[in-house]
Amino acid sequence: MNERLDVQKTYKLFIGGAFPRSESGRTFAVHAPDGSLIANVASASRKDLRDAVVAARSAQTGWAARTAYNRGQILYRVAEVMEGRRTQFVEELCRCGVKAATAELEVDRAIDRWVWYAGWCDKFHHIAGTVNSVAGPYFNFTTPEPTGVVGILAPEKPGLLGLVSRLAPALVSGNTAVVLTGEASPLTAVSMAEVVATSDVPGGVVNILTGATHELLPWLLGHRDVNAVDLTGAPDLEASVVAEAADNVKRLIRGEPDDQSPYVIADFCEMKTVWHPIGR
């Protein structure tokens, strides 16, 4: 009887709906708590970041133009597909040293979070938007609109749940995202990318880059085609680094790694006010 060979998974980047290796050819090793090698993971370069932003930009208009209801269906589909891969996510967390019970809880909460935000797609406008009273014969509405291309620094802990908690609310309103996951929990981040890739999310809407955040972050903050950056994953950033974002007046977002609120969706939105004459 022949013994089967191991089929090792190559953990790659997720850019524009495809899974390329890093343009730089670099990788970094992920070790289990006992020191054994789990995998080599692609380490993104600034050119991968550049490509990811181009993909996100070209996908943004189409994603925002879908009906809110359809975006909700697609985000719910992400939860469905993730549920089917539940054991894989749990196993990957366990390999990186998370206890089984904790891992199961984190995966369940991550799936539920997708469901929760999916439901908000066609409802959050009513919370975030207003009808303003003005002194004149006009309707005056303030409505939330997607900011555009959003860079997200995924929180290191909790790796999977933190990623979902920041990514999902950004997608709800029609933003596209370039996520830097750092080097802390790349396995579940890449598996999350595989789930997204098979859930009818259009290519480029979500881009996930594993690798050294400190190297990529200045390029992300300085990138003139990125409209907002979520710094939840890097709370203690030096002011001189953050100042890069001032060049094109980026929206900077700071939140909680494990938060679930319609106001997080609003954080990723621009408010647009419209005047409309009242007819007689």
Partner: peptide, 10 residues
């Protein structure tokens, strides 16, 4: 010129 990546808005 700027050392920053630019985009189609520019």
């Amino acid at each position: 010129d700027t050392g920053r990546y630019s985009g189609p808005n520019y």
